[in-house]
Write a protein that binds this DNA or RNA. Sequence first.
DNA 1: CGATTTATTGAATCGACTCAATTGATGTGG
DNA 2: CCACATCAATTGAGTCGATTCAATAAATCG
Lengths: 245, 245
Amino acid sequence: MGHLIRKLEHFVRLSSADRAILDRAATDRVRNFAPRIDIAREGEKPQSVSLILAGWACRYKQLEDGRRQIVSFFLPGDICDLNVFILREMDHSIGTITSVTIADLSREFFVEINACYPRIATALAWESLVNSAIQREWTMSLGQRTAYERMAHLLSEIFIRLRLAGLTRDDGCEFPLTQSDLADATGLSKVHVNRTLQELRSAELIILKGKSLTVPSLERLMNAGLFNANYLHMDHEGRQLDANE
Amino acid sequence: MGHLIRKLEHFVRLSSADRAILDRAATDRVRNFAPRIDIAREGEKPQSVSLILAGWACRYKQLEDGRRQIVSFFLPGDICDLNVFILREMDHSIGTITSVTIADLSREFFVEINACYPRIATALAWESLVNSAIQREWTMSLGQRTAYERMAHLLSEIFIRLRLAGLTRDDGCEFPLTQSDLADATGLSKVHVNRTLQELRSAELIILKGKSLTVPSLERLMNAGLFNANYLHMDHEGRQLDANE
DNA sequence: CGATTTATTGAATCGACTCAATTGATGTGG
DNA sequence: CCACATCAATTGAGTCGATTCAATAAATCG
């Protein structure tokens, strides 16, 4: 579907046949979920690989005593858990933030891609490497960045990822995360998230109100978060594979 | 080589042909590195996929001001950066802890594996999924666990991973990490690492002296770290693929 | 509209940090 | 093989970033 294709095209140019099979896969087995519910739970058998068509979701883990860590966000165009068929049991849960539309991608789809669409296969491998890199960057953030830097970094990352998927207009985007979500993602308390956001506001790095985020200068926000975009590998790195049409 | 095979066999039983090609790959292009040097640096073009034959290494990221986060450890039998050929530029560095012996795995090796050794291909996919799961668990640790829990968790993880590779005897193992390494991995200061280790010692959860770690009761250490081993997916999950010999 | 969730504020506390000094290992060259 | 240099581990004291608890204000939703 549109957001995935748009994202993958930052890595490699696809042919119209490539785009066609991706579009087809995205209209096949579509499911809708309400906001704030679990799509999959830790301990269950992984059922499918899902492409987010619309809405925000997250992957999270929880300790017995209730402490909760969001370990990644899924935005439109993201794929959850490539290859996960192999495993017996989920080691984390997946929950929605907003209402979410996903398309289940079948095993056969991946077999076909690997056999007949090498450009897509490579682009999906790229997507998966970028996801690993994002996870490492979160490790970095939680381990080394201050609350202020961490929040600026997270907001920069989300804004850039939304832009790659074509989900920003000018300097703004939808932003359905609550401060509580941000707390679970950054490892900070809700109260401190609130105060940190206020600092970012008074530094005029963000305008965050309702469910909408405006970033007057992405560059300044990135600087505040010590953000180095290299880990997103979005500089059209696979262009030697470009389709010629 | 031995440690990799041993580890993969926790997921699926390999045939002697499977083992043979892995052994061959591991004797092909072997390189040695001194302790405490960089094998690869952020910003460079990724050169190869490496299998650690002996020694410990780590993946780390650094901020401009010097703050350093170790985002993963590589133990014997681990593979660095499966698939990484695709990317233009490293987003992190890889450095040795001890002296290290690695075997470079060629692109052709992976092509051959995917074409002719589906069981190994699946096992390597499993290895890569487990690595992602470990990275998520580190995110969890840094975001939610206290210093004490975090240290207990890390030590449990390392001990278990070493055991999977056949590198423990009874309740002990080599442990070449300095407190400074532990600080960079846990996001704590060196001083606090020191104090946290003392707490673990006086709770009789670890005996750590010189470069050797003893864990009198792994179960108790795991409990202290709120350790749930599910993320390591080591319960022979791929047995439907077992070789019959 | 009232009910519930989300955001905000204040005050007190605490876990972890910094700085600085000391002790103990490890290793190397003469 | 000792002497020195270096690196790693330990300890104490003071500080600070972030937390908890608790109350209030503002949105959002049915």
